[in-house]
Protein backbone atom coordinates (compact mmCIF):
# COMPACT_ATOMS: atom_id res chain seq x y z
CA UNK A 1 0.00 0.00 0.00
CA UNK A 2 1.29 3.44 -0.87
CA UNK A 3 1.63 5.74 2.11
CA UNK A 4 0.03 9.01 1.07
CA UNK A 5 0.15 10.97 4.34
CA UNK A 6 2.94 10.89 6.89
CA UNK A 7 2.88 12.87 10.13
CA UNK A 8 5.86 12.62 12.46
CA UNK A 9 6.79 14.39 15.70
CA UNK A 10 10.36 13.53 16.65
CA UNK A 11 13.48 14.70 18.47
CA UNK A 12 15.93 13.63 15.80
CA UNK A 13 16.69 15.78 12.79
CA UNK A 14 15.20 14.92 9.41
CA UNK A 15 17.03 14.59 6.10
CA UNK A 16 15.48 16.61 3.29
CA UNK A 17 16.89 14.48 0.40
CA UNK A 18 15.44 11.33 2.04
CA UNK A 19 12.04 12.99 2.46
CA UNK A 20 12.16 14.27 -1.11
CA UNK A 21 12.89 10.75 -2.41
CA UNK A 22 9.77 9.50 -0.60
CA UNK A 23 7.68 12.27 -2.17
CA UNK A 24 8.73 11.77 -5.81
CA UNK A 25 7.81 8.10 -6.23
CA UNK A 26 4.54 8.70 -8.07
CA UNK A 27 4.74 9.55 -11.79
CA UNK A 28 1.23 11.03 -11.80
CA UNK A 29 2.67 13.95 -9.80
CA UNK A 30 4.06 16.86 -11.79
CA UNK A 31 4.75 19.10 -8.78
CA UNK A 32 6.61 18.71 -5.50
CA UNK A 33 6.64 21.61 -3.04
CA UNK A 34 8.61 21.46 0.20
CA UNK A 35 9.02 23.90 3.07
CA UNK A 36 11.64 23.80 5.82
CA UNK A 37 11.47 25.99 8.94
CA UNK A 38 14.80 26.67 10.73
CA UNK A 39 16.02 28.18 13.99
CA UNK A 40 16.71 31.83 13.15
CA UNK A 41 19.44 33.94 14.79
CA UNK A 42 17.16 36.83 15.79
CA UNK A 43 13.57 36.99 16.99
CA UNK A 44 11.93 40.36 17.77
CA UNK A 45 15.38 41.97 17.89
CA UNK A 46 16.85 39.54 20.40
CA UNK A 47 19.77 37.23 19.56
CA UNK A 48 18.82 33.57 19.79
CA UNK A 49 21.34 30.81 20.58
CA UNK A 50 18.99 27.84 20.75
CA UNK A 51 15.36 26.88 20.84
CA UNK A 52 13.46 24.26 22.82
CA UNK A 53 10.18 22.94 21.44
CA UNK A 54 7.61 21.56 23.86
CA UNK A 55 4.47 19.78 22.66
CA UNK A 56 1.33 18.04 23.85
CA UNK A 57 1.96 14.36 22.97
CA UNK A 58 -1.06 12.76 21.38
CA UNK A 59 -2.98 15.95 20.70
CA UNK A 60 -0.18 17.28 18.49
CA UNK A 61 -0.26 14.26 16.18
CA UNK A 62 -4.08 14.31 16.10
CA UNK A 63 -4.19 18.00 15.14
CA UNK A 64 -1.55 17.54 12.44
CA UNK A 65 -3.55 14.62 10.98
CA UNK A 66 -6.68 16.83 10.99
CA UNK A 67 -4.86 19.66 9.23
CA UNK A 68 -3.67 17.23 6.53
CA UNK A 69 -7.25 15.96 6.08
CA UNK A 70 -8.41 19.56 5.76
CA UNK A 71 -5.75 20.30 3.11
CA UNK A 72 -6.79 17.19 1.17
CA UNK A 73 -10.42 18.34 1.21
CA UNK A 74 -9.40 21.66 -0.35
CA UNK A 75 -6.83 20.69 -2.98
CA UNK A 76 -6.17 17.64 -5.17
CA UNK A 77 -2.89 16.74 -3.49
CA UNK A 78 -1.31 13.29 -3.58
CA UNK A 79 1.48 12.81 -1.05
CA UNK A 80 1.77 14.88 2.13
CA UNK A 81 4.59 14.71 4.69
CA UNK A 82 4.60 16.78 7.88
CA UNK A 83 7.55 16.46 10.29
CA UNK A 84 7.98 18.63 13.38
CA UNK A 85 10.86 18.28 15.78
CA UNK A 86 10.67 18.67 19.57
CA UNK A 87 13.40 19.13 22.15
CA UNK A 88 16.34 21.52 21.96
CA UNK A 89 17.68 22.76 18.61
CA UNK A 90 20.72 24.94 17.96
CA UNK A 91 20.87 28.00 15.75
CA UNK A 92 20.43 27.05 12.10
CA UNK A 93 18.92 23.62 12.78
CA UNK A 94 15.80 22.42 11.00
CA UNK A 95 12.53 22.54 12.97
CA UNK A 96 9.76 21.62 10.58
CA UNK A 97 9.30 19.98 7.18
CA UNK A 98 6.23 20.14 4.96
CA UNK A 99 6.19 18.29 1.63
CA UNK A 100 3.26 18.14 -0.78
CA UNK A 101 2.92 16.58 -4.22
CA UNK A 102 0.22 17.10 -6.82
CA UNK A 103 -0.39 16.78 -10.53
CA UNK A 104 -0.01 20.55 -10.86
CA UNK A 105 1.94 23.20 -8.99
CA UNK A 106 -0.86 25.49 -7.79
CA UNK A 107 -2.48 22.88 -5.58
CA UNK A 108 0.91 21.85 -4.17
CA UNK A 109 1.97 25.44 -3.40
CA UNK A 110 -1.37 26.33 -1.83
CA UNK A 111 -1.62 23.18 0.27
CA UNK A 112 1.97 23.56 1.52
CA UNK A 113 1.36 27.15 2.62
CA UNK A 114 -1.98 26.24 4.17
CA UNK A 115 -0.35 23.39 6.14
CA UNK A 116 2.38 25.56 7.66
CA UNK A 117 -0.04 28.43 8.39
CA UNK A 118 -2.44 26.09 10.18
CA UNK A 119 0.33 24.17 11.93
CA UNK A 120 1.66 27.43 13.39
CA UNK A 121 -1.71 28.46 14.83
CA UNK A 122 -3.42 25.13 15.68
CA UNK A 123 -0.86 22.50 16.62
CA UNK A 124 0.10 22.46 20.33
CA UNK A 125 3.81 23.29 20.12
CA UNK A 126 5.52 25.99 22.18
CA UNK A 127 8.93 27.58 21.63
CA UNK A 128 11.28 28.46 24.47
CA UNK A 129 14.12 30.67 23.20
CA UNK A 130 17.54 30.92 24.81
CA UNK A 131 19.80 33.92 24.31
CA UNK A 132 22.23 36.18 26.15
CA UNK A 133 19.41 37.35 28.44
CA UNK A 134 18.39 33.81 29.40
CA UNK A 135 15.33 31.87 28.38
CA UNK A 136 11.95 33.22 27.34
CA UNK A 137 8.77 31.79 25.87
CA UNK A 138 7.99 32.98 22.37
CA UNK A 139 4.82 35.06 22.14
CA UNK A 140 2.19 34.06 19.58
CA UNK A 141 2.16 36.50 16.65
CA UNK A 142 -1.00 38.20 15.37
CA UNK A 143 0.45 37.97 11.85
CA UNK A 144 0.42 34.15 12.09
CA UNK A 145 -3.19 34.19 13.28
CA UNK A 146 -4.14 36.50 10.40
CA UNK A 147 -2.36 34.25 7.88
CA UNK A 148 -4.38 31.24 9.07
CA UNK A 149 -7.63 33.23 9.11
CA UNK A 150 -7.13 34.31 5.48
CA UNK A 151 -7.57 30.68 4.38
CA UNK A 152 -11.14 30.71 5.70
CA UNK A 153 -11.99 33.16 2.93
CA UNK A 154 -9.94 31.62 0.15
CA UNK A 155 -11.62 29.15 -2.15
CA UNK A 156 -9.76 26.00 -3.03
CA UNK A 157 -8.39 25.78 -6.55
Amino acid sequence: MRLLSAVRVQEVDFNVPDEYQQLIQDDSDGAVVTFVGKVRDFNDGTAVTDLTLEHYPGMTEAILEQIVVEARSRWPVNKVTVIHRVGTMALGEQIVFIGVTSAHRKAAFAACEFLIDFLKTKAPFWKLEAGAQGQSWVEAKDADEQAAKLWQHKDSL
Binding site: A62, K120, K122, P124, F125, W126
Partner: peptide, 26 residues
Protein backbone atom coordinates in the same frame (compact mmCIF):
# COMPACT_ATOMS: atom_id res chain seq x y z
CA UNK B 1 -9.71 15.18 25.65
CA UNK B 2 -7.07 16.61 23.29
CA UNK B 3 -9.54 18.78 21.35
CA UNK B 4 -9.46 22.58 21.50
CA UNK B 5 -12.55 23.61 23.44
CA UNK B 6 -14.62 26.56 24.55
CA UNK B 7 -14.80 27.50 28.21
CA UNK B 8 -18.37 26.25 28.52
CA UNK B 9 -17.33 22.76 27.36
CA UNK B 10 -18.75 20.08 29.70
CA UNK B 11 -16.28 18.00 31.70
CA UNK B 12 -17.07 14.52 32.95
CA UNK B 13 -15.35 11.94 35.11
CA UNK B 14 -12.34 10.44 33.30
CA UNK B 15 -11.74 13.42 31.02
CA UNK B 16 -8.32 14.90 30.26
CA UNK B 17 -8.27 18.70 30.45
CA UNK B 18 -5.21 20.69 29.38
CA UNK B 19 -4.50 24.39 29.96
CA UNK B 20 -1.87 26.18 27.89
CA UNK B 21 -0.87 29.49 26.27
CA UNK B 22 -1.32 30.30 22.55
CA UNK B 23 0.72 27.88 20.42
CA UNK B 24 4.00 28.95 18.77
CA UNK B 25 5.26 26.00 16.72
CA UNK B 26 6.43 25.88 13.14
Amino acid sequence: NQTMSQWDAPIKDGDEVAFFPPVTGG
